[in-house]
């Protein structure tokens, strides 16, 4: 397998008429890393992926793959391969012919491309299904075939467009682990578009959070979670409360907040509020607090902590946190 290549986007822009889908983004993705483009729908993440793949022409800017500028190359000569949302397997071809398709287009003879396709199908545990049609496969099996089909061209970069969205929750977690394993074993660069922050956190070496055609923040999952760049990032990645202190906004992780009924000592920050909702989530209680000054907070309280201070809807409590744990937002 080919080793991965680094990717660099330089002021990459996509305009549809007057609307700006992707607004001059700059991004460097390290070779052999797992990168997740994350964001709400319409943020430009899929357009960015499609421009890297070559299925969408860039309005401006450049795409560099390794040492070469691939902006004007057709998809197949870029060294990228794409796995489409809901896989786009050819319904009239068997699993074997689907996987061998790219080689057939290059004029490789049947024996050779079948052997290569079987090898790739072995890699994704689908060697026993060569004669089936895509309609005879489950969602997870289809995804494995789509992976094999994309990998047969030995790409340096694999582009995945919402690869897990068609699967049920249980299977999604299993296939997620498998994607990660495959990326580790092949050592090539994966760029994975998703709108699920849990998926991105679980998989990515680098999360690129996009909003309105711009990159809000790029960094490791821990950086993005612990040091969100702005209010949008903090809200999208979840698990944070936004608090206002002296006109400045701070993000505080909701699992690092605590609740108490007595007035707190001066050194901790606090917000007085009324409990409006208590949800039991198994590992923790999620308690919604309607703050007296208008803000809504969610506090995650471990079960044992919850038991020491019995709380009810309507109780007035203080949400408290260590000031050092508050992260200033840009």
């Amino acid at each position: 397998m080919a080793a991965g290549s680094p990717i660099e986007l330089v002021a990459l822009t996509k305009r549809y008429g007057t609307t700006l889908a992707v607004d001059a983004i700059d991004l460097k993705i390290a070779a052999g890393s797992y990168c997740c483009l994350l964001g709400p729908s319409g943020c430009g993440k899929t357009t960015t992926l499609r421009m890297i793949a070559g299925h969408e022409a860039a309005s401006q800017g450049d795409i560099l793959l390794g040492a070469s500028n691939v902006t004007d190359l057709p998809p197949a000569s870029r060294g990228t391969a794409m796995m489409f949302q809901s896989y786009a397997l050819f319904p009239h071809l068997t699993v074997l012919d689907n996987v061998g398709f790219a080689l057939k287009m290059r004029g490789v003879d049947k024996a050779e491309r079948d052997a290569k396709a079987r090898e790739l199908l072995g890699l994704v545990d689908m060697a026993n299904y060569v004669d089936r049609l895509p309609g005879q496969l489950s969602g997870g099996q289809q995804q494995r075939v789509a992976l094999a089909r994309a990998l047969i061209t030995e790409p340096q970069v694999l582009l995945l467009d919402e690869p897990l969205s068609a699967l049920d929750p249980f299977l999604r977690i299993r296939m997620r682990a498998e994607l990660k394993r495959l990326q580790r074993e092949l050592g090539i660069t994966f760029i994975h578009v998703t709108h699920g922050q849990d998926e991105a956190m679980a998989l990515a070496d680098m999360i690129v959070l996009m909003h309105d055609g711009k990159i809000s923040q790029a960094g490791t999952p821990r950086e993005v979670f612990n040091k969100p760049a702005n209010e949008f990032v903090a809200k999208f990645i979840g698990g944070h409360n936004i608090v206002d202190r002296a006109g400045k906004k701070f993000a505080v992780r909701s699992d690092l907040m605590n609740l108490q009924t007595k007035k707190p000592a001066a050194k901790t920050d606090a917000i007085l509020g009324t409990i409006s909702e208590i949800e039991y989530q198994g590992t923790a209680f999620h308690i919604t607090l309607a703050g007296k000054t208008g803000e809504d907070l969610i506090i995650q309280l471990a079960e044992n902590k919850f038991d020491t201070t019995p709380l009810k809807v309507g109780t007035e409590v203080y949400a408290i946190w260590e000031p050092s744990l508050a992260h200033a937002l840009g």
Binding site: P74, P75, A76, M82, S86, F90, P91, M105, A150
Partner: peptide, 20 residues
């Protein structure tokens, strides 16, 4: 998207029509 997939796998427009 089937045609896009074919293109991604290196099919020319004619091959994409002929084989997909």
């Amino acid at each position: 998207r089937l045609e896009e997939a074919a293109r991604d796998l290196g099919a020319t427009p004619w091959q994409s029509f002929r084989f997909v």
